[in-house]
Design a protein around this nucleic acid. Structure first.
Lengths: 310, 310
DNA sequence: TTGTATGCGTTATCAC
DNA sequence: GTGATAACGCATACAA
């Protein structure tokens, strides 16, 4: 059986509270006593019981990172960055995945209400949109911060990429290269990200003098297609086999080989900066700040330009 | 403040223990009482305090998955599969990352000794090789199961791919396609995986009549190169710029574009099966079975053959 | 500087 | 079928 404070107290011929204080470096413990306790702790291999500590302090020293699946960089890159930040501040960050499963999702949120973590970062997935549990959790005052996506009707802040700025940058690059038309594949109803990008695309095209056309529009060699992810482009290509876009601009990586003769612009998001922003929002909440719906927008990191191959 | 059993007891005009039993569906509670308690719990939004429960039961209902970084499929694919298995058995699987940092690594192992989890799956990284804390943890009887890699001097079982079988399959495919020589890039001293592959490669070449040569050997059009990961091949190519292998066989995906005129064989490991095997080993330990050093080897899932492009 | 006493929210062991 | 009560391991207000 693991040693407890009680065992140490017996070994040191003193009281449990003295041991507790000595181990936590309480200034009013004599150096001799402290040394004696430290020796006994090492000797007996004492490890504090975190459940007991959490019960009395009400703090678990833990933050959760909630996400759908680990495979996507949009999820795991902020998670890793946030883990470092937490660690540096004495908290453990644990990643919980629900792999798009409703019951798993519900259960994880349930756990959060049971005190397993002091706060949570959430890389929003489809399931979060309609989740009553998530709403209740936020309403209960539990510190929640969203990453990348923002649920507007929820009293919880978010750290996202500056979607408008990113779209503007892509449109500018297209204009620079002589493109006159953009076909937008964003689905504004899908989530807040696609919504923001759609709006920004309209504004950017207006400002920079490009025509904006819907997915069904015919293509020419001065028409580019813009989408949130490669998957949207792939679907669009598959929907009408003849399509040969002259340029693809996405907020994502293009997997493998781009279509022949096609310029590809990949926007690289700054996930580390996003995690840092989310961390700031979270510590504010942990420190007692009231819930807000603030959205911190961090600039993108770079645009990768992949010239067309012949 | 969140409602407690005490609050429910007051609301129901009964004792705490009755409430506790009613909520846990104890058979000796009258239907009326059970309904009354359930109503009060819903009314007051009662949520059990897991810290308190863990303190008295000694069980946290949690399993950890320890890994270096999330980005690698070798890590996150088994993690996701294991999460599902755990969930189906009433346990939560949480992923903890140490991103190759010694202090983070030490700290996570420390947490495990403090009762945060009932057991842990470990996707072994470099840090685990020399970690004294890991040895202590295993020695303390904590249920530990390794995934993919195996630390032979540790009293902990492992679930790995059948490395020997995989190497044999790759060599057979090469032989079938007329290759006569294999250059082996595995580094037997690196870890147990590379070690096993090196041995299997020697055996397979002997059996199937191919010549096995070291990395410095000259190449011809009937010579293939075999390595654990793409990174080994990339390093090897960079070390001597003239090299143009006729085939590359790796236990991994080849990122992006293969070299011109080069056949690529990618071995796909069966991470789901690996997770299932690891889960079996872990439940055995959780169920009270003594620690063992058993290694369960699961067959690979497929070999992807990418023909040379001209 | 140290000891005493109490409570955190649950479960479990008794009684009745 | 239900109630009283003692743990579980730790932290802390209050005494001394």
């Amino acid at each position: 059986m693991p040693a407890t404070l009680h065992d140490l107290a017996r070994a040191c011929l003193c009281n449990v509270s003295t041991v507790s204080r000595a181990l936590r470096d309480d200034p009013r413990i004599s150096p001799e006593m402290r040394a004696k306790v430290a020796a006994a702790a090492a000797e007996l291999g004492y490890r504090p019981n975190l459940a007991a500590r959490a019960l009395v302090t009400g703090r678990s020293g833990t933050v959760w990172f909630l996400l759908g699946e680990l495979s996507s960089p949009v999820n795991h890159q902020p998670a890793e960055a946030a883990a470092r930040l937490c660690r540096d501040h004495g908290l453990d960050l644990l990643v919980a995945t629900h792999h798009g499963d409703r019951t798993a999702h519900r259960r994880l949120l349930e756990r959060l209400r049971q005190g397993v973590a002091e706060g949570a970062l959430i890389a929003a997935s489809e399931l979060d949109q309609e989740s009553a549990e998530l709403r209740e959790l936020a309403a209960s005052g539990f510190p929640l911060v969203f990453i990348d996506r923002h649920l507007p009707d929820l009293e919880a802040p978010a750290a996202t990429t500056d979607h408008a700025g990113a779209v503007t940058a892509l449109v500018a690059l297209l204009a620079e290269r002589g493109f006159a038309t953009v076909v937008g594949l964003h689905q504004p109803g899908r989530n807040s990200v696609d919504h923001a990008r759609t709006q920004a695309l309209e504004a950017a095209c207006r400002t920079q003098g490009l025509r904006l056309l819907p997915p069904q529009a015919p293509l020419d060699e001065r028409t580019a297609v813009m989408a949130s992810g490669a998957f949207q482009v792939v679907d669009w290509l598959a929907a009408s086999p003849g399509r040969q876009p002259a340029a693809i601009a996405i907020h994502d990586r293009w997997p493998g080989q781009p279509p022949a003769g096609c310029l590809v612009l990949e926007l690289e998001q700054d996930f580390a900066a996003m995690a840092a922003a989310a961390w700031r929002l979270l510590t504010a909440r942990l420190g007692g700040a009231p819930p807000s719906s603030a959205v911190m927008q961090v600039p993108h990191r770079a645009v990768h330009i992949i010239p067309p191959r012949s």
